[in-house]
Simulated assay, not measured.
Amino acid sequence: MRFTTIVRAVIAVSLTLAAGTGVLAAPVSSASAPSSAAVENTEGDGYAFALSINDAANEGNVTVDGGLPGLPWLSHIRCIPNFYRGKKVSPVERERLLGCYKKFQEKGEWISKMTKCPDTRRYFQSWGHHWDSPPDCYNACKSCFENSVFDQAANFRCFKYEGITARCHVTYE
Rank of each mutant, 00 (worst) to 15 (best):
A31G: 01
A12G: 08
C137L: 10
Y172F: 15
F145W: 04
A140G: 00
K102L: 12
K142N: 12
V23I: 13
D132V: 07
W131F: 06
F145T: 04
I6L: 13
T63K: 09
M114R: 14
R121P: 06
K103T: 15
R94S: 09
I80S: 14
R85P: 09
F49N: 04
N155D: 09
S126R: 06
C117V: 03
I53S: 15
N41H: 09
S30A: 11
P134C: 10
M114T: 13
V10H: 12
C117P: 06
A153Y: 10
D132N: 08
K113A: 04
F145S: 08
P135W: 07
I11M: 07
I111Y: 01
S29H: 14
P91E: 00
V13K: 08
D132M: 02
W131V: 00
L15Q: 15
R122W: 11
D136E: 14
F145L: 03
T120A: 03
F156R: 08
R8Y: 09
E146G: 07
R78G: 01
T5H: 13
Y138I: 04
G99V: 03
A153H: 05
E93N: 13
K113M: 07
V39R: 14
E95Y: 11
F83W: 04
A153Q: 00
W73E: 05
M114W: 15
G44I: 02
C79H: 00
C100Q: 04
E40Y: 09
E95G: 05
Q105V: 06
E59F: 15
E95Q: 13
L68K: 10
A33K: 15
K87R: 04
I80N: 14
D151V: 08
E173K: 15
L74A: 07
C137W: 06
A9W: 14
R167W: 15
I164R: 01
I11C: 10
G99L: 05
T42H: 03
D151C: 03
P72D: 00
F156W: 10
H130D: 10
R2A: 11
W110P: 00
R94G: 03
I11A: 06
G44W: 10
I6V: 06
Y138D: 01
E59M: 14
V10F: 13
K103L: 11
H169D: 15
S126M: 01
E146C: 08
S52L: 02
A9T: 02
S32F: 07
P34W: 13
G66H: 11
N82K: 05
V89L: 02
W131Y: 05
N147E: 02
Y84Q: 15
A19F: 09
W131G: 02
K160D: 15
P72T: 08
C100E: 09
V62T: 10
S133P: 05
F49R: 12
D119N: 03
T42C: 06
G67V: 03
L15P: 08
I77M: 00
T21V: 12
Q125R: 09
E146L: 01
P72W: 00
A57Q: 07
